[in-house]
Design a protein around this nucleic acid. Structure first.
Length: 475
RNA sequence: GGGGCAUUAACUCAGUUGGUAGAGUAACGGCCUUUUAAGCCGUGAGUCGGAGGUUCGAUUCCUCCAUGCCCCA
């Protein structure tokens, strides 16, 4: 194998240098956008334009050549003629390759076949591409390569760009919505002394100067609640949390969450809030309340169905969740049993109940044993709900427990779970209990998994499709 | 952690019931001044993911490993 694409391109690069022209150009502003030119051709016809983009195709015709240049996902045809750009410049076309970034100036016109085109008067190389781009027509399908070299994915698969535009739009709409409702965005630590606010295994790191282990946060919850103690009434945070768990189509070790706290409200208020906010955002992004997700037609218009945890267990799994013995028996029968009653309940809920919930639904009033930070209701329940769509847990919310004594007891119980082998049990956090002792107003808190929301809105089956650089094993 | 599937040219894919591989696009050389998956003529391109094993012979069969995808725990 003597043909080396990289080598051939490096030789072309050398030719630019030998001609005294840098193959890596400088500032090329001001620039006319390709979209603007294509969308408003009548205004541009006969006018001078200055454009830049990556060469995505070349069609040579002897003494002239067509190229398509791409800016973002818009392509514009440019036309170069030997008699216009001059013999020397025209000869330099041979030093260009698919993938090179060029700038060009000239007049906008339409070809015989009606294509909006720039008649090039001058052009310059702005950046040489030293590797062949994936072939334009078939795109890049190799999933691994798409994630490892996401830049190639964006260059040749325009629909991928749309997913991330949608993601950006969703987050922006969320912020705007929250701001309208009077919420303030805050930033709390990502490195925690104790990994709290959720039941999950953390990543551990080390701070050298203080010589202490720190944990990447599994949730911002306990710090946000400290702010509520401090008198903040409506706050939210949109940022990453980290959980040291396996990678799957629905889990990435780092993921983005919206977490919000609303003082003096309860979980009923948040159900209202959630269905309004999410349906509105999905409507804005998808232009419809009815969306397709992986073959299911989902109607996200409010109100969403509400089913209590107890009822869901009864109806879907035909089980009384309070019957610890029966639950344990069923769990091991299904091969999903855990070490503790809590684990069994959680497993049955996730594996046997969630998959049956398709339309947007609130499951509410969870067992206390599953919710160490939620406010109690009756003897063994908590004021908690989860929005579920297409079997996906989109979030988690509750009326927050604000009784420090009960909070301490729940932590003690979690410690027992930990001692009996549950590595995801919540650690005792005395500092947080102390904050509660100063008096936290009644408050409702909501977490929304942004990645999963984006999956729904973009009909993506894997969370990796909605994360720019998902975690992969190093090559 | 366990199971299944995948890995062949730069890209997308064929293929070989075991005899060291093909196509389209891309690349390279030539022709062509309104093409657009441009066209025409010609050329070259591969450790068939890696390492072992079986065999006269392995890309193909077996084992292990790597990476990815999916399912299960």
């Amino acid at each position: 194998m003597s043909e080396d694409y990289h080598q051939i391109r490096k030789e072309k690069l050398k030719k630019w240098r030998e001609a005294g022209i840098s193959p890596y150009g400088a500032r090329f502003l001001p620039l006319n956008s390709l979209r603007e030119i294509k969308d408003n051709f009548p205004a541009w016809e006969g006018k001078e334009a200055r454009v830049a983009g990556r060469i995505m195709s070349i069609r040579e015709h002897g003494k002239s050549a067509f190229m398509d240049i791409q800016q973002e996902s818009i392509r514009l045809q440019i036309y170069l003629r030997k008699d216009i750009v001059g013999e020397d410049n025209f000869a330099r076309l041979g030093w260009l390759d698919l993938g090179d970034v060029i700038g060009a100036e000239g007049e906008i016109f339409k070809t015989r076949s009606g294509e909006v085109t720039l008649m090039v008067k001058s052009f310059s190389l702005l950046s040489k591409c030293l590797h062949p781009l994936p072939q334009k027509w078939y795109g890049l399908k190799d999933v691994e390569k798409r994630y490892r070299q996401r830049y190639l994915d964006f260059l040749v698969n325009p629909e991928v760009r749309n997913i991330f535009l949608t993601r950006s739009k969703i987050i922006s709409l969320l912020r705007r919505y929250l701001e309208e409702k009077g919420f303030t965005e805050v930033e709390t630590p990502m490195m925690h002394i104790l990994p709290g606010g959720a039941l999950a295994e953390p990543f551990v790191t080390h701070h050298n100067a203080l010589d202490i282990d720190l944990y990447l946060r599994i949730a911002p919850e306990l710090y946000l609640k400290r702010l509520i103690v401090g008198g903040w009434e409506k706050i939210y945070e949109i940022n990453r949390s980290f959980r040291n768990e396996g990678v799957s189509p629905r889990h990435n070790p780092e993921f983005t969450m919206l977490e919000l706290y609303w003082a003096y409200a309860d979980y009923q208020d948040l159900m209202q809030f959630t269905q309004e906010a999410l349906s509105k955002i999905i409507y804005e992004v998808c232009k419809s309340y009815v969306i397709e997700y992986q073959g299911e037609s989902l109607d996200v218009s409010p109100p969403w169905e509400r089913i209590s945890f107890t009822h869901a267990f009864k109806e879907i799994a035909n089980l009384d969740w309070r019957d610890e013995k029966e639950v344990g028996k069923k769990a091991s029968e299904w091969g999903i049993g855990g070490d503790t009653p809590g684990k069994n309940l959680d497993a049955i809920f996730k594996k046997k109940i969630l998959p049956h919930i398709i339309q947007p639904t609130f499951i509410y009033d969870y067992p206390r044993i599953l919710s160490p930070l939620a406010k109690g209701k009756e003897e063994d329940l908590t004021e908690r709900f989860q929005p579920i769509i297409c079997g996906l847990e989109l979030g988690n919310a509750y009326s927050e427990l604000n009784d420090p004594r009960e909070q301490r007891e729940r932590f003690i119980h979690q410690r027992k779970e930990k001692e009996s082998g549950d590595r995801e049990a919540h650690p005792m956090d005395e500092d947080f209990v102390q904050a509660l002792e100063y008096g936290m107003p009644p408050v409702a808190g909501l977490g929304i998994g942004i990645d999963r929301l984006v999956m729904l809105a973009t009909n993506s089956s894997s969370i990796r499709e909605v994360i720019l650089f998902p975690l992969l094993r190093p090559e």
